[in-house]
Design a protein around this nucleic acid. Structure first.
Length: 778
DNA sequence: GTCGGTGCGGGAC
DNA sequence: GTCGGACGAATTCGG
DNA sequence: CCGAATTCGTCCGACGTCCCGCACCGAC
């Protein structure tokens, strides 16, 4: 088949300088207690509120009526993804109907009429094997795209499922679905595929459905339970080597070439001739082995884990091994992520409750179900429990049984990037909104419950990790900042490293050096101050559906700033662009990252994480064209790309120039900001200056050693949010700290600087100056 | 057998 | 964290 | 007024620095 080469794509607002006059009237935001004043009590603060303030398919499907069976998924569907209707009524029969064999049953299974597409699919699959030479062919994007754009692929019935009592659902069935998903980029189709699978599993067994869902999202437990696989590249390499009987080095090489461990195993296994057919893996077997891996720790745990993985691999067919490995990497990379899985699960549940009939359901029915499920999971992120409730009460009623509960993390509301202050007014046109300082710390969700004398405080991170052990100091000061009538709450805050001697914010880098498991409060080296900006729950009542104005009111009414420990995020309710601009400058001045902008009233101001994933806006200085730190750096090396970047370089090593020592000093890697076309053209151009070993005048560390070296010829403009003190990069080495260099936070490619020679790149002295000018470093 | 260095995994941004 | 690409839905444009 | 073209929002997966905790390993 003709696989098109890497396709190329094409494609690619300023801010007014306010400052003019401006009725600076009042509104000097004062964070009261912040530094000096500290009138910590509410007085100052709370009062001026108004001014504002502070703060598959089967071998053959005997039972299926062919007619009904083929379904066209979506495509024309007017309803979202309801397209595919399939009836798998069988189950009655003796089950054995659907024996599966790992060999190629694909083709045969489906209905002849579709031979065409079938071939297409087969081709795709074959492609990887046949045309292995050009790995690009494997790019999902290209796979199908060209082939049959017109015809929509029908969802192939995948029924490797034996419904007979006691039989487990084969892992292979799920993998077949993954394969089909990977072959397309159409979102509706993806949803339909996984949804159909869930529909089938759902009828069979609740536990297996849960296991399947967990495998789809590549998780082994809810985030807050802190159960992690603890598996990474090196352990996988080891396991693959042992399972396929090869040297680790070999596997490593192949990994570099292919950029995908999944593909590496798949090929490795197919080269192996298996004498006997292993007992097929079931979904629950796989999932439970994953859990076992996750829960082993201690001495020689790596060996045990490797053993478990090797065992699984031994029982895998080729396809299975690919997805098994990717699951262990924590990312399936097939275009199916949690949000889509949730949608599919909701649709499946709705269909099941309609006796398996999707035709009579309206698009709104699906929408409603999806919204319910997403909302519930964001308030009660425990799949086992939620799925349980679906069975018990129905998808439309789960919200009444899985409600926001202190002690269980709420998915935090996020913000969308906004690049210019002007756009904000347009977006919010006329509606009142507030601007808050965006502090550079760590998102903390503080939960508290008092039950008589028993009190409990739990603190979660932005990603729902349980951080209670990291912040015992916060937990122990709850009683100081919570008012006397507060019995329970969930607070949304930013925990920021705090210099209590000078009453100042410290850098993010400082915060991150804090111990993660503090045994004794006395040993805390980095103090923290919480800047609260929202209240989600208070005294037994969820507040998330209230408008922000109300939540903020309750926050200020029931909580009290405490010096050096707890404050309200500084905020101002504004209406003019110039004011926003000025407030942004002020936030920067105060060592914050920028502003968060939120509407105050109406439904858009409620705390609804799932409905609109980002209802807040964030405005940072470095988003604005022409502002923020920008450097011109020399490209001296490159790293092979992985996944969708195979065939290109995934990242490059950059250096600044030190004219005194006449050397190029590594400063950071860069891997974002490139369009696909950039990726291609950069490689082409840079390969011309490829050299086999680093120049003697390159200063770099082994830890950042690139796969490919270049002579210093190309200069790029790069933007960064901050500069950091680095243990592994050499830029401005010794100028600030005798044993550390400087690196960049959030580096991204902006453009090529054809007009600069490498010697004209940003110098190490300039780098040092830029670092020094960040006042937060003193 | 203990101790410190190293490399990996995972989590912040 | 930043960023670009693909989809699908919403909105605008052009005949 | 309707279909085509364009814009917008969402989702996904590439990739960045730095840090701690843990398992491992070699030196003593």
């Amino acid at each position: 088949m003709k696989q098109p080469l890497l396709a190329s794509f094409f494609g690619k607002g300023g801010m007014a300088k306010a400052k003019t006059s401006k009725p600076a009237d009042s509104e000097k935001p004062t964070n009261d207690s912040s530094s000096k004043s500290s009138g910590d009590d509410d007085s100052a603060v709370v009062n001026d509120m108004d001014v504002d303030k502070q703060a598959a398919k089967a071998e053959d499907e005997p039972e299926l009526d062919v007619g009904k069976l083929d379904i066209k998924s979506n495509s024309s569907s007017d309803k979202p993804a309801t397209g595919t209707k399939r009836r798998i009524v069988d189950s009655d029969d003796d089950g054995s109907a659907t024996e599966f064999s790992d060999k190629e049953d694909t083709g045969s299974a489906t209905d002849p009429s579709d031979a065409e597409e079938e071939q297409e699919a087969a081709a795709a699959a074959a492609a990887s094997a046949a045309s292995k030479k050009k790995k690009r062919a494997a790019k999902p994007a290209l796979k199908k795209a060209k082939g049959a754009p017109v015809k929509v692929k029908k969802a192939e019935p995948i029924t490797l499922i034996d419904t007979k009592e006691g039989k487990k659902i084969p892992f292979l069935a799920l993998c077949k679905v993954f394969e089909a998903i990977e072959a397309t980029t159409k979102r509706l189709e993806i949803t339909a595929l996984i949804r159909d699978f869930f529909v089938q599993v759902m009828d069979i067994d609740k536990e297996e459905l849960t296991d399947a869902v967990m495998l789809c999202i590549a998780k082994v437990a809810p985030d807050h339970e802190g159960i992690e696989l603890g598996i990474g590249e090196s352990i996988l390499l080891k396991s693959i080597a042992s399972a396929t009987g090869r040297q680790i080095q070999k596997v490593k090489q192949e990994h570099q070439a292919l950029g995908d461990l999944g593909v590496v195993v798949e090929r490795g296994k197919s080269n192996q001739n298996t004498m006997f057919k292993p007992k097929p893996l079931s979904i629950s077997k796989v999932f439970h082995t994953f859990r076992e891996i996750a829960t082993t720790s201690g001495s020689s745990s790596i060996q045990k884990k490797t053993g478990l993985i090797t065992g699984l691999l031994g029982a895998c067919t080729n396809v299975e091994s690919k997805y098994l490995i990717r699951s262990l990497e924590g990312r399936l990379r097939i275009g199916l992520a949690e949000s889509t899985v949730q949608t599919a699960l909701a649709h499946a549940a709705r269909i099941r409750e309609n006796d398996g009939d999707s035709d009579s359901l309206a698009p709104e029915d699906f929408l409603q179900a999806t919204e319910n499920l997403k909302q519930v999971l964001s308030e009660f992120p425990v799949y086992t429990h939620v799925i349980d409730s679906i069975y018990k009460y129905g998808i439309n009623d789960i919200a009444n049984h899985c409600t926001l509960t202190p002690t269980l993390p709420v998915k935090p509301m996020l913000a969308k990037i906004e690049k210019a202050a002007d756009d904000i007014l347009r977006r919010f046109e006329g509606k009142p909104f507030t601007c808050e300082f965006k502090y550079d710390g760590e998102r903390s969700q503080i939960h508290y419950v008092a039950d008589g004398d028993e009190t409990q405080c739990v603190i979660f991170s932005r990603n729902a990790e349980n951080n209670t052990a990291k912040y015992p100091d916060i937990a122990s000061s709850v009683k100081e900042f919570a008012g006397p009538n507060v019995k329970s709450f969930i607070l949304d805050c930013e925990a920021v490293a705090w210099d209590k001697i000078n009453g100042k914010i410290r850098s993010f880098q400082t915060l991150s050096s804090r111990k993660r498991k503090v045994e004794n409060e006395a040993e805390i080296t980095v103090g923290v101050c919480c800047f609260a900006f929202d209240l989600l729950y208070l005294n037994g009542e969820a507040l998330i559906r209230m408008p922000l104005r109300k939540r903020r009111e309750l926050l200020r009414e029931h909580f009290v700033p405490v010096q050096n420990k707890f404050q309200f995020a500084i905020s101002k309710d504004l209406t003019e662009v110039e004011d926003i601009q000025e407030f942004l400058e002020l936030s920067i001045e105060e060592n914050c990252e920028g502003l968060m902008i939120k509407t105050l009233d109406g439904s858009t101001s409620s705390y609804e994480p799932s409905k609109r994933s980002m209802n807040w806006l964030k405005l940072k200085k470095d988003y604005v064209d022409g502002l923020g730190d920008s450097l011109d750096l020399v490209v001296i090396g490159a790293y092979f790309g992985k996944g969708k970047r195979v065939g290109a370089y995934g990242a490059y090593l950059l250096a600044c120039y030190d004219p005194d020592r006449e050397e190029y000093q590594a400063i950071c890697k860069i891997g974002t900001g490139f369009s696909d076309a950039d990726l291609e053209s950069h490689k082409e151009k840079l390969d011309e200056s490829r050299i086999s070993a680093p120049k003697p005048y390159y200063a770099f560390s082994e830890k950042t050693k690139p796969d490919i070296w270049f002579a210093p010829t190309v200069v790029w403009e790069v933007k960064a949010a901050d500069l950091s003190l680095s243990p592994i990069y050499q830029a401005a080495y010794g100028e600030i700290d005798p044993s550390k260099g400087v690196s960049l936070r959030f580096p991204r490619f902006i453009r090529i600087r054809d007009d600069k020679t490498p010697e004209m790149a940003t110098s190490s002295t300039q780098v040092a100056e830029m670092y020094e000018s960040q006042k937060i470093n003193h």
